[in-house]
């Protein structure tokens, strides 16, 4: 391995003899903007990230079994009937608004809004300090959506009535 710059592993510089270039000079301060080779700098990190994700999945699968309820029965709607968690926010909206609004307009609006975002927000600045409106709007949307998801997922019981998750648990994964 022979970068023109010293290779840094665990904060320690690894020295090596590099043909054609003088041996490593004084310790350099890492320049964040400096381009470096993707292999190994990025690929090693990606490898570690991939392993971490895989270990999480394999451990989850070891300790928690996927649910399987009774065989489908068109004659009997379970009570409560819960959508998968990622649609819990929509289901919560459906309990309050006309299905045309909650089931069609809201999801379509969200998708169109997300697609249009980079064409609406033409501000070239990257730092959140200079894009308060965009950041605030997105954050509000995200918080509302997360709260609705949590309510639909954990706080709803039979006949879509309110329950406290520490008393009765009806969440489905």
């Amino acid at each position: 391995m022979s970068d023109r710059e010293p290779v840094v592993v665990d904060g320690k510089r690894v020295l090596g003899v590099v043909p054609g270039t003088p041996p490593g000079g004084e310790r350099k301060v890492l320049d964040e903007q400096e381009p470096v080779m993707v292999w190994p700098h990025l690929l090693v990190r990606h490898g570690v990230a991939a392993l971490v994700v895989l270990v999480v999945v394999l451990l989850l699968a070891l300790f928690f079994n996927a649910p399987l309820r009774e065989i489908a029965n068109p004659m009997d709607t379970p009570n409560p009937e819960k959508a998968p968690w990622y649609f819990a926010a929509l289901q919560e909206l459906l309990a309050h608004f006309h299905p045309m609004v909650a089931g069609v307009l809201v999801p379509t609006g969200i998708i169109i809004g997300l697609v249009a975002l980079p064409y609406i927000d033409r501000n070239p600045r990257l730092s959140p300090r200079f894009r308060k409106v965009a950041v605030a709007t997105f954050t509000v949307f995200m918080v509302v959506w997360i709260v609705l998801t949590l309510i639909g997922f954990m706080f709803r019981g039979p006949n879509w009535g309110w329950v406290w998750p520490w008393q009765d648990w009806y969440g489905e994964l």
């Binding site: 709607t77 009570n79 009937e81 459906l94 309990a95 299905p99 006949n159």
Partner: peptide, 22 residues
């Protein structure tokens, strides 16, 4: 007619009560 769940008849209240969204 809301979202297609089967609505059971509730004997004690004498009305149809949908389990999905109440």
């Amino acid at each position: 007619p809301h979202l297609g769940c089967r609505v059971p008849w509730c004997e004690s209240s004498g009305q149809f009560e949908c389990p999905c969204h109440g």
